[in-house]
Amino acid sequence: MTRAVSAVADVTVFLLLVGAAAGAIVGGVGSQASTATANPAAAQAATLATSTASVEYDLVVPPFEGHEPPDSATRRRRTSHGTVAELLGEAAMSGVTVDGERLSNAGKNFESRVGATTRDRLHSRGHRTAVRVTWSPYPGAPVGSAYHVGDRPPETVDVRAATVTVPSGMENVSEPARDAARTSGYEGVAAVVARSVVDGLFPPAQSRYALRGGYPADVLMRARYERMAELTGTTVAVERDSTTELNRHLTAALAATLRTDMRSRYDSPDDAARAVRTSRVRVTVRTWSP
């Protein structure tokens, strides 16, 4: 199997396939030559959205008491294939954080290899290029991710930018969030968003399969659940509870955090709901003259 499951699951549930496809390209990216000439970032973004690559990486498996690897190895070689934009999206989702703390380090080598692949694909004569990949369920949320390739452009130069979006692995809950705002206020919006995030990071069926499978999927998924519980201030019993129950505990804990954050950030539940964007990762290309 050449492509692991999306790094939304931290490159852990690698037994299933992801059928992600690059989404709508915005910011001036198009097929017209004049567009690329006027905005070199548009041509670079189009390249990322359409060119494909295979990335070989080492899946780093954390030590876990009672789950010793069969051959004492802590790394597993994997290969992921997709458009470069998809791989960038997966790299960003591999590094999801809660309150600035990473959920897992298992995909760090994957992130590094995707960065190297991206740099190899970006060629723009007479321009410098950087890529910023971001995801959050709404702007400024305490859970999110940010991934960079290349140097940040200086503040003093003229920067051109273009953006392509790819799926995050999270359900699109914009409409349910608006409905929840009308019926249940901030609490309802937070619950909808938290459920989308937790089920995206821990797809119940795939997570159950991983926990019941062999090394290293079981170790990675167990460590992931327990780390998420730690970051959200709750506890889980991975060996006892079903993945549905585990996700329910995590959702409740994350929803409480999001509710508090939304109250401080938005003037009304409707405003909070309108800001919800769970399902897309933004891949922004920026170019400038050296």
Score class of each variant (00 low, 15 high):
residue 109 N to P: 09
residue 78 R to T: 01
residue 133 V to M: 03
residue 242 S to Y: 04
residue 245 E to M: 02
residue 84 V to I: 08
residue 281 V to W: 07
residue 222 R to K: 14
residue 157 V to I: 13
residue 89 G to T: 03
residue 77 R to N: 10
residue 193 V to L: 10
residue 122 L to R: 04
residue 54 S to A: 15
residue 250 L to V: 05
residue 240 R to K: 03
residue 273 A to D: 08
residue 26 V to Y: 15
residue 185 G to R: 12
residue 211 L to H: 01
residue 279 S to M: 05
residue 277 R to G: 11
residue 251 T to M: 04
residue 221 M to I: 08
residue 233 G to M: 03
residue 43 A to E: 13
residue 218 D to K: 09
residue 2 T to S: 13
residue 50 T to Q: 08
residue 136 S to T: 13
residue 240 R to W: 00
residue 10 D to P: 01
residue 217 A to I: 05
residue 209 Y to E: 15
residue 176 P to E: 12
residue 172 N to F: 07
residue 135 W to Q: 07
residue 287 T to V: 05
residue 50 T to R: 12
residue 104 S to P: 08
residue 203 P to S: 12
residue 219 V to S: 07
residue 153 P to L: 05
residue 15 L to F: 13
residue 144 G to K: 02
residue 187 E to G: 11
residue 188 G to Y: 09
residue 200 G to M: 10
residue 23 G to E: 14
residue 278 T to K: 07
residue 141 A to P: 09
residue 126 G to F: 05
residue 55 V to L: 10
residue 153 P to R: 07
residue 73 A to E: 09
residue 209 Y to T: 15
residue 142 P to Q: 12
residue 239 E to V: 02
residue 222 R to V: 06
residue 197 V to Q: 04
residue 266 Y to N: 04
residue 200 G to Y: 00
residue 27 G to L: 11
residue 64 F to M: 07
residue 241 D to R: 05
residue 257 T to M: 06
residue 240 R to I: 00
residue 206 Q to K: 15
residue 73 A to Q: 10
residue 199 D to Y: 06
residue 142 P to V: 05
residue 263 R to A: 11
residue 66 G to W: 00
residue 250 L to P: 01
residue 286 R to F: 07
residue 171 E to W: 13
residue 167 P to V: 10
residue 84 V to N: 00
residue 113 R to E: 08
residue 259 R to D: 12
residue 12 T to N: 15
residue 109 N to F: 08
residue 239 E to M: 02
residue 132 R to E: 15
residue 264 S to R: 11
residue 98 V to P: 03
residue 57 Y to S: 14
residue 107 G to H: 03
residue 218 D to N: 13
residue 45 A to P: 03
residue 238 V to R: 00
residue 221 M to G: 07
residue 40 P to I: 09
residue 50 T to S: 11
residue 78 R to P: 00
residue 221 M to D: 06
residue 20 A to F: 13
residue 85 A to C: 06
residue 47 T to M: 11
residue 204 P to M: 07
residue 258 L to Q: 06
residue 271 D to G: 15
residue 145 S to Y: 02
residue 192 V to K: 06
residue 189 V to E: 03
residue 145 S to P: 08
residue 114 V to R: 00
residue 161 A to D: 06
residue 226 E to L: 03
residue 245 E to F: 01
residue 165 T to D: 10
residue 156 T to C: 04
residue 8 V to M: 14
residue 139 P to K: 09
residue 256 A to F: 01
residue 268 S to E: 14
residue 245 E to G: 00
residue 114 V to M: 01
residue 159 V to L: 06
residue 24 A to F: 15
residue 129 T to D: 02
residue 248 R to V: 00
residue 194 A to P: 03
residue 228 M to P: 09
residue 75 R to D: 14
residue 96 V to M: 03
residue 122 L to K: 04
residue 143 V to N: 03
residue 222 R to D: 06
residue 34 S to N: 10
residue 29 V to R: 02
residue 228 M to K: 07
residue 27 G to W: 07
residue 259 R to Q: 14
residue 31 S to Q: 10
residue 105 N to C: 11
residue 140 G to M: 10
residue 184 S to E: 11
residue 154 P to I: 12
residue 127 H to T: 04
residue 234 T to L: 00
residue 261 D to R: 09
residue 21 A to E: 15
residue 63 P to F: 00
residue 249 H to W: 01
residue 74 T to Y: 14
residue 27 G to Q: 11
residue 284 T to G: 09
residue 80 S to A: 15
